[in-house]
Nucleic acid binder design. Structure first.
Length: 303
RNA sequence: GGCGGGAUAGCUCAGUUGGUAGAGCAGAGGCCUGAAAAGCCUUGUGUCCCCAGUUCAAGUCUGGGUCCUGCCA
């Protein structure tokens, strides 16, 4: 597999850069965004509009409904299939998006595992909520290596590790050990990382734009369609805060301020993630000579 | 004008029978193998509104100010 990745915190300008690069390379774009996969959530997830895509084909946008769950595993599988197909057509696809975990899953692969058993997960999660210590204790018995790595309060990961053991009879750490490196993957990785102050300003401005573009109506429509605040897709920055305001009232300005704040928190987490990722090119902003980037990518990925 | 309530970390507030202060959020740093826009960890010295008094000792008691705020006029 060969592809280009464009990564960066929210509102850094990934979409714009991806589009320019796609034109320059005559290729297509695969979105790596855990919220753009959801239908009907367009404004708040900053999906590119029809006008913006300008005929560039986009993948993995609008693939599930807000009450369905999506996953890194599914992304790795679906994106991988698209990359391989485009490679066969002689194209160098662009994987662009802010969900670093999805991109890592595509690049490094995940260990083999059965589909999530939702009933099991819900049961374990309920137990963890009642007594996390007890659930964590079980993990230390079943998979001490994972228990050492996972913090006792991190219920999601404690439960996930137990899930794996209960479903397969094999510990998560053992799955890791057996996981084979899938080194057939080569990518040219670009990071857009604005100065923090500039980024925070962009986040605030962009949220104002979303509000002007009808984000509140979008949220209302989702509720009218019957989607609930705790549906997988609805658990998204901006949506949560507006849903909460619609249900509980209060000052709309406070809800907006909170949504912006949550966006900044999110951007900070993304930035931390990127520190442990190696990139071929790091940009302050998306405003660069696209042809030199295209050339560098082709050069690195030429066989 | 009268009668109450309040003034403590950037914000919202705790502070027991007086022993110079602590939570949540924010901020900063970090983790991350099928929920990842999620979840989790670490990090809290600030004229305790001001002045005077009581006391070995006052955020904590007393008196006087100042400023908010609720009700009645």
């Amino acid at each position: 597999m060969r592809f280009i990745t464009i990564q960066g915190p929210t509102a850094s300008g990934k979409t714009a850069l991806a589009l320019k690069l796609a034109h320059a390379l005559d290729t297509e774009i695969i979105s790596a965004d855990s919220r753009q996969v959801y239908r009907y959530m367009d404004i708040g997830t900053a999906k590119p509009t029809k006008q913006e895509t300008q005929g560039i084909r986009h993948y993995l946008i609008d693939v599930v409904d807000p009450d369905e769950s999506y996953s890194a595993g599914r992304f790795a599988e679906e994106a991988g299939a698209i990359v391989r197909r485009l490679n066969d057509e002689g194209k160098l696809p662009i994987v662009a998006g802010g969900t670093g975990f999805y991109i890592r899953a595509l690049q490094n692969g995940l260990f083999e595992s059965p589909d999530v058993d939702m009933a099991l997960r819900i049961r374990l999660m309920a137990e963890a909520e009642r007594d996390i210590e007890k659930v964590y204790q079980r993990l230390t018995e079943v998979d001490p290596k994972s228990a050492e790595r996972i913090h006792r309060n991190d219920a999601k990961r404690v439960v996930r590790a137990l899930e794996i053991f209960e479903q397969t009879g094999i510990s998560m750490s053992e799955h890791w050990r057996r996981q084979q490196e899938e080194n057939s993957c080569r990518s040219f990785d670009i990071l857009i990382l604005p100065e923090r102050e500039a980024l925070y300003e962009r986040i605030d401005k962009r949220f104002n734009l979303m509000m002007n573009n009808g984000l509140l109506d979008e949220v209302k429509r989702l509720i009218e369609m019957g989607y609930k605040p705790d549906d997988p897709g609805m658990n998204a920055v901006g949506y949560r805060e507006l849903v909460d305001w619609l249900e509980n009232g209060g000052e709309i300005d406070a809800a907006i301020a909170l949504a912006k704040q949550k966006s900044r928190n999110y951007a900070k987490r993304q930035t931390t993630w990127y520190r442990s990722v190696e990139f071929d090119l790091t940009l302050r902003d998306a405003d660069i000579n696209i042809y030199s980037v295209a050339e560098a990518a082709q050069e690195k990925l030429a066989t």
